[in-house]
Design a protein around this nucleic acid. Structure first.
Lengths: 187, 187
DNA sequence: TAAAATGATTGACGTTCGTCAATAAATACT
DNA sequence: AGTATTTATTGACGAACGTCAATCATTTTA
C-alpha cells in the first residue's frame, strides 16, 4: 500500500486523517489472466488503479472484439461513461495477465465528497487525467491517418507493442489487423 | 445573468455567498460572426459557457481547416487539453454567429478551489461533462464506420445539420466533404 | 518434441475513401 | 433582381481499407 499511497499523495496532498478515510474505500484485488473485472451489461460503479499487470477494455460488435484501451501500472481506469451516468456498460474489462488493482467504489467516493475539498479534488483530477487520454486519442482520429496514428503510438509508447498482440493494437487504432500489417510493411 | 445562475445551480447548489464569489469570476463577452475567442499558439486559460450563439473548434492542418467541435447554448467549452496542461493550443475557437458567452479564467478557479467543496465540485462536474462528450465521440470512431457516425449524429442532434455547413460536419466526422456527400447519396 | 493453438502476413477482390477538377445549387450582397 | 460568393454535388482516378481465405511464424500445451 505504501507505493499506492505515495502515488495518490502526488496527486493531492491529503492529511493523515483524510488518507485514513480514503484508504478504507480502496480494496485490493488480485486477478488471473483472463479474469473479467467488468462485463457488458453491468454498471461500472468503481474506479480502478492498476498496481501490477495489464488490463484491456473491449467491446463486442457484431461478434468480434474491439479493444479500445489498455491500462498499465499507475493508470486509473474505469468505464467512466458508465460510472458517471450510472448506466450499464457496453464494455468488458479483462486482465491480460495476472495482476493487482485498487478498487474504489463510486458510492464511497460520493459519500465522502462533501467532507473534504481534497476528495473532490482527487475526483476532479482523476476525471481530468482520464479526459486527457481520451482527448488526445480523439484528436488523432480526427486529424491523422491510420498510418500516422500508428507512428505516433510507436513513438509515444513503444512498450505497448511488445506487451500486446498486434491485432489488438489494430483495433486500438481503429483498423483491421490486416491493414496494420500492411501499414507496417509500407514503412 | 439569471438564466446562467440557474444553470450553474442545477450543477451544484451554491450558497449565496459562494455564488457571489463565483459570479465575480465570470465575465460576459459578446462576439460577432467570425470573431476568434482563441487562436492557435495562445494558452487557453479559461472555460467558456455559451449563452447564445454558435461556436466552433478547429485546427489548421496542412493548410486547411478541420472543425472538430461545435458548441451550442448551455455548453461548456474550452481547449481543455491546453487548459489543463497549461500549454499552447493548437486550435482556434471561432464565433460562427454573433453571440454571448460567460468566461471563467483558470486562475480565478484555482484561487478559489481551496475555499469551497462546491467550487471543486463544479470544476469536477465540468470536467466530467466535457469528458463525456469526448468519450462518446471517440467510441464512435473506434467502433463505427463513417456512415454509422453520420447516422448517429443525424439521430442524436439533427439540429446541427441545419446550423452548420456540411463541409464542417464532414470534418467533424473525420471525413472529406465529398465523402459525406456520397454517404448521404447512398442512404 | 510434436501437435495444437494463436498470431501475423500475404493474396485477391470489392468497396470506400481522398484528391483534383468541374458543375450545380444555395446563399449573400449590392 | 442579378451578380458574386459560398457550399454541395458529381465524375474520374488512384490509394487505402475491409473481408475472406490461405499460408507462414510463433507460442502454448500435452
Amino acid at each position: 500500500m505504501k507505493e499506492f499511497k505515495k502515488h495518490i499523495k502526488k496527486i493531492v496532498s491529503l492529511s493523515e486523517e483524510e488518507w485514513d478515510i480514503l484508504k478504507n474505500g480502496f480494496k485490493k484485488i488480485s486477478y488471473s489472466k483472463g479474469d473479467l473485472i467488468l462485463s457488458e451489461g453491468e454498471h461500472c460503479d468503481f474506479i480502478g488503479f492498476v498496481e501490477t499487470g495489464l488490463f484491456r477494455f473491449y467491446i463486442i460488435k457484431e461478434g468480434n472484439e474491439k479493444t479500445t484501451d489498455f491500462w498499465f501500472p499507475l493508470d486509473f481506469f474505469s468505464d467512466y461513461r458508465s460510472f458517471l451516468t450510472n448506466t450499464p456498460s457496453n464494455y468488458n474489462i479483462e486482465a491480460m495477465r495476472s495482476g493487482t488493482i485498487w478498487k474504489l467504489k463510486r458510492a464511497y467516493m460520493h459519500k465522502h465528497y462533501e467532507e473534504s475539498v481534497n476528495f473532490n479534488k482527487l475526483g476532479r483530477i482523476i476525471a481530468e487525467q482520464i479526459f486527457l487520454m481520451k482527448s488526445l486519442r480523439l484528436d488523432s482520429f480526427l486529424i491523422d491517418s491510420p498510418k500516422e496514428r500508428y507512428l505516433k503510438l510507436l513513438n509515444k509508447d513503444p512498450n505497448i507493442l511488445q506487451a500486446v498482440p498486434q491485432y489488438m493494437i489494430a483495433s486500438y487504432l481503429g483498423i483491421t489487423p490486416e491493414s496494420l500489417s500492411r501499414i507496417r510493411k509500407r514503412i
